[in-house]
Design a protein around this nucleic acid. Structure first.
Lengths: 146, 146
DNA sequence: ATCAGTGCAAACGATTTGCACCTCG
DNA sequence: CGAGGTGCAAATCGTTTGCACTGAT
């Protein structure tokens, strides 16, 4: 619990920033600002937190290129995710919004560069990542529709 | 201009619903509720429109499975798109949010079912579509960073 | 010490909802 | 005619901002 941690360099590491970073690092999926906020509140560490601080920190992290801001398909609020070496894609039910994680990323199977990526790079665009979601209807919702 | 149109069946087709449908059909990319609203206001057809009506109509269309609700990567508001046979993917600049349309969809090149899709179908999930975005930095923003 | 980072509360923009009226089928 | 759709205004929700204070370097 008292383990010394090393945080990315280049910015001031306040208690709040550390907490947000820790939550993101231990998360298994993208989290919203409010989820992060609640997560931190549960461990009533010390002092108060403002939700606005969370937003500001997330913005900073994003500018630093440490995290990615996304949204769930069909949902409106934003979720944030640490940029990691590996990532997960999901299938999203358009009816109940349930998310089913996929086991691997189709792009890992594409050994040749895709046409698109080649083209983009020629145009000076640097691709740093991608986002993929399948959508449809889960077994439960399929059942209720029938 | 006075061409008789056929609209999807199953719901009441009011003037407002027709207008929203027409805008979506003539759109070349997903539109937000406000964009649709403005689009309609330009052609001051008849009577007033309420933005809330647009939202309600879009919700109805989505429930009917006629449209898909999405968001642009790194943006927060929602955009809506008619479900069509063909679709476009984009590369999004994380810095300036510029969107570059890609010429074709990588999934069209995958002749074999992906592992994921097989698995999902076995689990009773019906895949009706997908959403893919590449992200990174466009030539202009790359330049400014260097 | 200094300036970036933070808490608080108020502001904001996008989306939703309650209610009385209107219109499609 | 009647159920469902709509306009309007007020409410809600996620996110942002101004300002005075605090804390990391």
């Amino acid at each position: 619990m008292e383990e010394k941690r090393t945080y990315p360099q280049g910015i001031k590491w306040t208690r709040q920033r550390k907490d947000v970073y820790d939550v993101l690092e231990s998360a298994s999926e993208p989290l919203s600002a409010v989820q992060i906020y609640n997560h931190i509140e549960k461990h009533p560490a010390e002092g108060n937190y403002a939700i606005s601080t969370i937003y500001r920190i997330l913005t900073t992290f994003e500018e630093q290129g440490m995290i990615t801001k996304t949204t769930w398909l069909g949902d409106d609020s934003c979720v944030y995710e640490l940029k990691r070496n590996s990532h997960t894609h999901y299938a999203v039910c358009l009816s109940c919004h349930k998310r089913i994680p996929l086991h691997d990323c189709p792009f890992e199977h594409m050994h040749d560069q895709s046409h698109e990526e080649e083209e983009l790079q020629a145009g000076g665009f640097t691709v740093t990542g991608h986002k993929l979601e399948l959508y449809g209807y889960c077994s439960t919702c399929n059942f209720h529709k029938a």
